[in-house]
Simulated scan of single mutants.
Amino acid sequence: MTLTLRALGKTYAGRRVLADVSVELAAGGYTCVMGASGSGKTTLLRIVAGLERQDAGSVLLDGRAIDDLPAERRPLHTLFQDYALFPHLSALDNVAFAPRLLGVRDPELTARARALLRDVGLDMSFETRKPAAMSGGEQQRVALARALAGAPRWLLLDEPLAALDRPLRAGLRRLLRDLARRRGLGCLHVTHDPEEALALADRLLVFGGGALLAAGAPAELYAAPPSLEVARLLGEVTREPGGDGWLRPEHLRLGESGATGVVRSLACLGDRWEVEVEIAGRVHLSRSPTPPACTPGAAVALAWDPARVLRFAAPPA
């Protein structure tokens, strides 16, 4: 079921929130929407979900406009950051809620809810637990199972992993990607986390100031962003030593030859090391998976592949 956004526009109190956004998203694809706070990404999701009304444009599913359909009649389900589980219901009853409204009854109802809990990695011991007796990651899994219970064609996710710690985020990220692909489910996932977006998305939409700044495959946008703004939203950049271009820190390496400078600091970031090197009064970042053989105050050289340099047109005056 193709999701098409056609010339969407939205204004709040005279401030443009979305400006002429048009994009077509293929059925079964995983699309992440990235942008800074206030960029319009959540407003876009709420319009698609039917929770807000756009001022201009249209939302279409397989070519049919759904603008007049209320949220509950759209073949979509929205998963919010706060999960919105019913606190008085068990995990099993939370998941069974939507099918029960659709007329599904036992034993099919219980069997379907149990299968969905298993699908998100929860065993039978969770069936009778209420949300207060679950961790944040467990609640998120129940919320995901409940979202899938209504058999939506598209799943809309609004910062669903933001409240979780890093190990839980990584595990649920893999679960989301696996479930979406196994079920052929279209996903529209709003996030401010570039690592999350790059890991999950088949297609990435980057927003800024209510406008769609870039759309494409995540790896391609990361390697060749169309603007400095997009480059910074997807990861850190550092100035080219002695030049006017930009580099990703992992593409600026310590070596025996190149631009020479002095180490200002170094830090372990877990799976990589970061070194700050000052050259001619400007600080450059270098990142490497191996510990650097230098200390603060040491003289070092920085080398890079000129093909990796990012160059951007000057912004309009």
Results as ranks from 00 to 15, higher is better:
residue 84 A to H: 05
residue 84 A to V: 09
residue 85 L to R: 02
residue 87 P to S: 15
residue 89 L to I: 10
residue 89 L to K: 07
residue 89 L to A: 13
residue 90 S to N: 04
residue 91 A to K: 03
residue 93 D to E: 15
residue 95 V to P: 02
residue 96 A to M: 07
residue 96 A to N: 09
residue 97 F to C: 09
residue 97 F to P: 07
residue 97 F to V: 06
residue 99 P to H: 15
residue 100 R to S: 10
residue 100 R to V: 10
residue 101 L to Y: 09
residue 101 L to S: 14
residue 101 L to N: 12
residue 101 L to V: 14
residue 102 L to T: 01
residue 103 G to I: 12
residue 104 V to R: 05
residue 104 V to S: 01
residue 105 R to I: 05
residue 105 R to Q: 15
residue 105 R to E: 14
residue 106 D to Y: 06
residue 109 L to H: 13
residue 110 T to L: 00
residue 112 R to L: 04
residue 112 R to N: 04
residue 113 A to N: 13
residue 114 R to A: 05
residue 116 L to K: 00
residue 117 L to A: 00
residue 118 R to L: 01
residue 118 R to W: 00
residue 119 D to M: 05
residue 120 V to K: 10
residue 120 V to F: 00
residue 121 G to E: 03
residue 121 G to C: 00
residue 122 L to G: 04
residue 122 L to I: 03
residue 123 D to L: 03
residue 125 S to R: 09
residue 125 S to W: 02
residue 125 S to E: 13
residue 126 F to T: 12
residue 128 T to F: 05
residue 129 R to T: 11
residue 129 R to I: 13
residue 130 K to T: 12
residue 131 P to K: 06
residue 131 P to N: 12
residue 131 P to Q: 14
residue 132 A to W: 06
residue 132 A to E: 11
residue 133 A to Y: 01
residue 133 A to E: 08
residue 135 S to G: 00
residue 136 G to S: 10
residue 136 G to A: 07
residue 138 E to D: 02
residue 138 E to S: 08
residue 141 R to P: 02
residue 144 L to H: 08
residue 145 A to T: 10
residue 146 R to E: 05
residue 147 A to I: 05
residue 149 A to T: 11
residue 150 G to P: 02
residue 151 A to G: 14
residue 151 A to F: 13
residue 151 A to Y: 11
residue 152 P to S: 06
residue 152 P to T: 08
residue 153 R to F: 13
residue 153 R to A: 15
residue 155 L to P: 02
residue 155 L to V: 01
residue 157 L to P: 04
residue 157 L to F: 12
residue 157 L to D: 01
residue 158 D to E: 01
residue 158 D to K: 05
residue 159 E to R: 01
residue 159 E to Y: 04
residue 159 E to L: 03
residue 161 L to Y: 07
residue 161 L to S: 12
residue 162 A to Q: 06
residue 162 A to M: 07
residue 164 L to S: 10
residue 164 L to G: 05
residue 165 D to V: 15
residue 165 D to I: 09
residue 166 R to D: 03
residue 166 R to T: 14
residue 166 R to M: 14
residue 168 L to V: 14
residue 169 R to G: 11
residue 169 R to F: 12
residue 170 A to I: 02
residue 171 G to P: 11
residue 172 L to D: 04
residue 173 R to F: 03
residue 173 R to W: 05
residue 174 R to K: 15
residue 177 R to T: 10
residue 177 R to G: 10
